[in-house]
């Protein structure tokens, strides 16, 4: 943690950490504390008085069908997004690793969606899925599907899941390719001599050896699907139609910032904080494991 040979200085270290500390306190810890406090209060609409109401905000929240549904939608959205982008990333990385000696060209060809902002990914897919002008949307319509993401909640959900997972494929690809290249050749060769074919080797040797990477990526993809996809949803469906794509993070924004429901929004923030803390702890456990596996 601390270097054996270090400095003792009464002022300098405080000066060095002060810029970051100021920002952390002002823009992170204070707002988080304020959200915690507000979650247990109600304030009148004119901001004059506040009353402490214990868990009433949380109770109200879970009593509304909309919020409970939002939980479910977030689950469907996050799990589908993570699964889809993980499978695509793994498949592309496995194929690249299997047949190509020089991997940088494929990497270059697959890496660019990473640089595309979630909101821009939403915009591209909104066009592709447009029922009249988009190539995929029009294809679906002309083949008898009543495709309309503006009115149909399921269609809207499918669209945001595809847009969100498309953006994440490159990320998974980079990590999977790294993981695959670290699988020792000698083990694979030994298995081949024992008569295991390429597919069998992949499922019996490569996949188990890759499990630390897979666990790590599952957590990272869930974090991405939870928080970073706000832009995808805001740019395409704005939570609609009828709240069909209103995930938990989108609801904090629409209830709090647009709807100005202070207590309710703060309670939602606190629930999300609990989820993030859990995800972060799991993430660190997984990273520990990863280090351990690699020896």
């Amino acid at each position: 943690m601390l270097k054996r040979s270090h400095y003792e200085n009464p002022i300098l270290p405080y000066l060095l950490i002060s810029p970051q500390m100021l920002i952390v306190i002002l823009f992170f810890l204070w707002p988080a504390g304020a959200a915690l406090l507000q979650a247990f209060q109600i304030s009148d609409p004119f901001g004059q008085g506040t009353a402490f109401v214990w868990f009433d905000n949380f109770k109200n929240l879970f009593e509304t069908l909309e919020y409970r549904q939002s939980f479910l939608k977030t689950l469907v959205f996050s799990v589908s997004t993570a699964l889809l982008s993980l499978l695509m990333g793994l498949a592309l990385a496995a194929l690249t690793n299997r047949i190509l000696k020089i991997k940088t060209v494929t990497r270059t060809l697959l890496i660019w969606p990473y640089a595309v902002a979630p909101a821009m990914a939403g915009m591209l897919w909104l066009f592709l899925f447009h029922p009249t002008y988009g190539v995929i949307g029009h294809f679906l319509v002309s083949n008898g599907v009543d495709w309309n993401p503006v009115l149909n909640g399921t269609h809207a959900m499918v669209m945001v899941i595809i847009a969100a997972s498309w953006k994440q494929i490159s990320y998974n690809f980079v990590f999977f390719l790294g993981g695959l290249q670290a699988v020792p050749r000698s083990i694979l060769e030994a298995a081949a001599i024992d008569g295991a074919g390429p597919l069998r080797r992949f499922f019996v040797i490569v996949l188990p050896l890759l499990s630390p990477t897979i666990f790590f990526l599952i957590v990272m993809n869930l974090v991405y699907a939870f928080f970073d996809t706000f832009g995808v949803i805001h740019a395409t469906t704005e939570g609609g139609p009828g709240g069909a794509t209103s995930t938990l993070v989108y609801k904090v924004y629409s209830d709090g910032f647009v709807g100005q429901d202070l207590g309710g929004s703060a309670a939602q923030s606190v629930i999300l904080m609990v989820i993030t803390v859990i995800l972060t702890i799991v993430q660190f456990k997984v990273v520990e494991k990863k280090v351990h596996y690699n020896g």
């Binding site: 823009f27 204070w30 959200a35 928080f227 924004y253 709090g256 910032f257 923030s269």
Partner: peptide, 24 residues
Amino acid sequence: AFWMIFMTLMLPVEIRILPTYEVA
């Protein structure tokens, strides 16, 4: 200081929208 910086990992802007906006 180390732990305070560490805490920011768990507080993405998405979950503290309103109070951060108030500070800004």
